[in-house]
Design a protein around this nucleic acid. Structure first.
Lengths: 346, 346
DNA sequence: TATTAACACTAAAACGTTGTAGTAAAATTT
DNA sequence: AAATTTTACTACAACGTTTTAGTGTTAATA
């Protein structure tokens, strides 16, 4: 049954013409006479000729494929970004290869090398936590040196000179905090991450700035920086304990701003257990407009990072670089603005 | 700066030997003298020679790449499956290309054709809702006829003869329903989907069977088949209204079994609004062990479909087919057993 | 009528590999 | 010393395309 794929050569011998004639006919070249063209095209269609992309790639030295490396795929933000990339790319005739670093430096390097070894024209990547901590960007520099364009998104570094797409974390955090302040909240609990993650860092700064601009003196007891290692399950238990302890110690707060959904969901659980009313007594907001926010009770007000837009923008930037030689020199950084999605928790 | 990639030919001229010698040296062939080998290997390393995978693919007629087509990527189950596929595949030296059909028949066909046009050795796919409704599998048959192995997972059809990986939906649903019955519940609300989705269909049957085996007569008012078109946001509003109406009409139930997380989350919201205690008054369970279940209050008891395992199994099946010619004839269907993850809602 | 232009096609190289077959020179055997 | 084997290489085809540079015919021009 295996009807295998037919090649130009086979069509040529079958039809008694040369390979070039077949190729040119199929590409509708004016060099070939109308009759011959028709004959070839008809035969090709009848035998379901499909041009072999690999041979083409070899010849053109481009694969029309872009590689994406993300820290995690089971993740609302990242899967949305991919969605954006995939949509734009496939619409532009590009394939998308996905690789997952699992937040590991080593795996990121491996995946990057595998991709750079052919098969992709350019790379879109969000750095693994480990890479950010290590600050070792040799693999990226190598790839770029080979003439493969790299676009960094979300988890970026200033140590690399390439196109970047970032969320305006700081002003998003500032807006979120200000949003709570405008609702009359003054004692706002911040649930953030360790500082080496620029994301957490920027958001913490935005929070601090908002307080400052509103003349509120920050209270260190109200700033929790979660130690986000691996398993988010365990992490949550620890965080819940911390918040519980805070309440038990009598540290008072009337607002919570978390740098992601799950931190806020954890806080919500604790408040519920302590029978504290949300949003009446405590108003809550967080980054990442994901699934969780839509299904808790009350639903969570969030700061949307427009993940899909980030994906599209990254893909645009990359494809622009791939198709327009002259764009290779300049490096652009696109900043995606956040927006607040108000739900029931504020 | 562009140090481009060095080729065998360049190494050869540089070192004054033939291309074959270089190739063989790098592949550590016994045909080549030790000294020459050393020289070549050293030179190659110094210039960071990387073998061009595309040329290799053309030569070997295999790409070491597998294509995955899923209906949606921003989806806990599917992204987990991909995770499984990616893990196993990359461990076996395979790349993974992802494409999204967005539940559209047309896009599925397009993506499939793009993939089949070279670039992939085999395909793992979960069918789009539209395809299932249309029952048109010509594109899949074509691909298989071309000698490209296809593995179907989760959303499968009996009209195609190929390897399949499915969840034991029926017995999972039966187990879930029985689980509620064993907790003393008799009036169990079922939140399912339209029947053309075999998933919803099987789960409904499992529910029905469980009732039967326990001598409970099914109550049609307690079976809601959601009309799951596009936007899940709107869908939820409708579903919530339906459940609310049910309660207002005085239709009584003490358990809820939903075929997915979000239906159960919606139900939970309604019960909360009506001040009905979970799990005291109503016990709840659902399919899909996703993120939502972990962050609602109470956390939801779920039926895990072991998405990652499905991914791994699919990849195993495919790679087996790719590497072992003789396995091409037989078709296997692997059934992944579900398991119940008990949390706070029961 | 001789030259040129247009037409309809073909040959061959190139993209980067690998593997088969071939070839000198050196080493071994008879 | 001649025949054979071994060693250490090289040439070349092949994978499936596209493209450049031809090559005969026929038609148009001088």
């Amino acid at each position: 049954m295996n009807k295998k794929r037919i090649t130009l050569k086979e069509i040529a011998t079958e039809l008694g013409v040369s390979i070039s004639t077949v190729s040119k006919s199929l590409n509708n070249s004016p060099e070939i006479g109308e009759e011959t063209k028709k004959k070839v095209v008809a035969f090709a269609k009848a035998h379901q000729y499909r041009t072999n992309t690999i041979a083409l790639s070899l010849k053109n030295r481009k694969t029309k494929t872009i590689g994406v490396i993300i820290p995690e795929i089971v993740h609302y933000f990242f899967s949305n970004v991919i969605n954006g990339i995939e949509n734009y790319a496939s619409q532009q005739g590009y394939n998308v290869i996905i690789a997952v670093s699992n937040e590991s430096f080593e795996k990121e390097v491996l995946q990057m090398e595998a991709m750079a070894n052919g098969f992709i024209d350019g790379i879109i990547i969000s750095l693994a936590k480990e890479t950010l901590k290590k600050q070792d960007y040799y693999h990226l520099q190598e790839t770029m040196a080979m003439g493969i364009p790299v676009i960094l998104f979300d988890r970026v570094t200033s140590n690399l000179s390439c196109d970047k797409v970032v969320v305006d974390d700081k002003s998003g955090a500032e807006a979120a905090t200000t949003f709570l302040i405008n609702k009359g909240r003054k004692k706002i609990l911040l649930l953030s991450t360790q500082d080496y993650l620029n994301v957490g860092n920027h958001r913490t700064n935005g929070y601090l700035d908002a307080l400052k601009k509103n003349g509120i003196f920050p209270d260190n007891r109200l700033i929790i920086k979660c130690n986000d290692q691996r398993s988010s399950e365990e992490e949550m238990v620890v965080l819940e304990k911390q918040i519980e302890a805070l309440i038990d110690e009598g540290v008072d707060f009337d607002g919570v701003f978390a740098v992601n959904e799950i931190y806020l969901a954890a806080a919500l659980r604790v408040l519920r257990a302590k029978n504290i009313k949300v949003p009446k007594e405590v108003s809550m907001i967080c980054f990442t407009d994901g699934v969780i926010s839509r299904y808790t009770t009350p639903r969570l007000t969030t700061v949307s990072q427009h993940a899909e837009e980030m994906g599209i923008t990254s893909a645009e930037l990359l494809i622009e670089k791939l198709e327009d030689e002259s764009s290779m020199d300049k490096t652009i950084t696109k900043i995606i603005q956040c927006s607040i999605v108000e739900r029931e928790s504020t």
